[in-house]
């Protein structure tokens, strides 16, 4: 089946079997291997990407469902000039990753929420809900929570600074 995915702003015209899940198409057809498969049944969240701005499990969507949609992966998180996303800097600063396998999924869950609601840093319970969306076996999660809050507050601070 012929589809077009827009991934991180670039159009990918593809011919894919309907059964191929979005994560496999991103990894193999688009060559974007930053999206990892940790469980392939929607639990661990390592494959989380943004589809039209919303965080979804890329193992629980077929790529054909995303025909015409805009997909964002961890490769598209940094600015075009390579400047890291605040979340990327915050994850490093808080040591919120060890093996790094689950990391792209946590980054995308957080990125989706942060972009939808820049004030999420004011609502620690919602941040808890985000951290509680995925599985990490190395960090024990707490550093991930701190990293998301740090990035959220940093963004808020930047904006407030501009507004002043």
């Amino acid at each position: 089946m012929k589809i077009t995915l827009t991934v991180n702003g670039a159009a990918y015209p593809l011919d894919v079997e309907p059964r191929r899940i979005l994560a496999d198409v991103l990894r193999e057809d688009c060559g974007l291997t930053g999206t990892h498969l940790g469980c392939e049944h929607g639990i661990c969240g390592a494959c989380t990407v943004l589809v039209d701005g919303e965080a979804v499990r890329a193992c629980l969507m077929f790529a054909v469902q995303c025909d015409g949609s805009s997909v964002r992966t961890v490769e598209g998180l940094a600015a075009p000039d390579g400047e890291p996303h605040p979340l990327q800097r915050a994850f490093s600063a808080e040591h919120a990753l060890q093996c790094g396998f689950c990391t792209p999924g946590f980054l995308m869950v957080a990125a989706g929420a942060l972009e939808a609601d820049p004030n999420i840093g004011d609502d620690p319970e919602r941040v808890d809900g985000l951290v509680g969306s995925n599985i990490c076996r190395c960090t024990g999660y707490e550093p991930i929570r701190r990293a998301i809050l740090r990035a959220a507050r940093e963004q808020q601070g930047d904006r407030d600074g501009v507004n002043r």
Binding site: G42, G45, A55, L60, M61, V109, G132, S133
Partner: peptide, 9 residues
């Protein structure tokens, strides 16, 4: 019901 990325679909 699961968590936000599941609830969004």
């Amino acid at each position: 019901i699961a968590h936000p990325p599941i609830r969004s679909r």
